[in-house]
Design a protein around this nucleic acid. Structure first.
Lengths: 147, 147
DNA sequence: GTGCGATAGACAGATTATCTGTCTAATCTG
DNA sequence: CAGATTAGACAGATAATCTGTCTATCGCAC
């Protein structure tokens, strides 16, 4: 529970903006006939780095348990959007990487995000939007236990 | 899917901040021995206005279907945190209201949110935090289809 | 005022996402 | 090297969410 005030509190504002962005990106995928990726899978996939990322790290970033992340990665693997390769640096671990099949997905999602951000910048002004970005970036130092 | 860039994108920053706030509030409830409210229930409860709110509106605000919202309200009703009363303005509708049993919960959650916001203000400066609030408030005009 | 499309929300059923707990192998640390 | 930690798989349970359908009511346009 955050609060139940009438004036929207910061939590709700963060939520609304986040969900709007996420929703637009996912809708863009559906519009591009990419209908075999759920929102939860996308949340995981969006956090995969260019050189692959461990399931544990994906779990931390997406704020779910390792089990949940593993479950979603398994599905993404089944649909061919990711692959798991051994981590050369740690034989316990496996790196989750995006496959070439994911290229179109990433491109589509990124394009839409860019479009949304352009709309936002148009609405509130590029400076104010950048201020939000920079402040949230600094805030991450205390809100993000990892990194 | 938002993107998979390395520099955190705005979507991820919004997510991290939102989840940090939500998590802290929920943890505060658990610390106060309020363990019969789940995060999903809290998301719904946090959006109930002082004079009661319709399930449909809660669903819209929390970005879930009416069915999901109804399901969660049912649980909150079973644990006695909310009650449903007929809406005098519309006989189809019922208003979901917080009960007195919810007082402690609301107070606990609000206190923790205030505490978190104070920490945030401490870290980035009150001005910058207020700028984030105001910009997100303006942004809501285009990101929030309702209201 | 009547009729028709929209809305509120309940009911049913299915699926998806998530968690806790446990286990093994591998790594790190003192 | 021994013990603690970490990565992630496996098993099982639960929670959350969706689609679809249905009834009652509302709000208009005519």
């Amino acid at each position: 529970m955050t609060t139940n005030r009438q004036e929207p509190n910061l939590g709700i504002l963060l939520f609304v903006a986040y969900r709007a962005l996420e929703r637009r990106a996912h809708d863009a995928l559906v519009a591009a006939d990419i209908t075999d990726i759920t929102l939860a899978q996308a949340r995981i996939a969006a956090r995969i780095g260019p050189h692959g990322t461990r399931v544990s790290e994906l779990a931390e970033q997406a704020r779910v348990t390792k089990q949940s992340a593993g479950f979603l990665v398994e599905q993404l693997e089944a649909t061919g959007y990711v692959e798991r390769v051994p981590d050369p640096a740690d034989r316990r671990a496996r790196l989750v990487r995006l496959t070439t099949r994911a290229d179109k997905v990433v491109k589509t999602a990124n394009s839409e995000v860019d479009r949304v951000l352009a709309e936002w910048a148009e609405h509130v002004g590029p400076d104010r939007l950048r201020q939000v970005y920079e402040t949230l970036l600094d805030l991450r130092e205390i809100t993000d236990p990892w990194r």
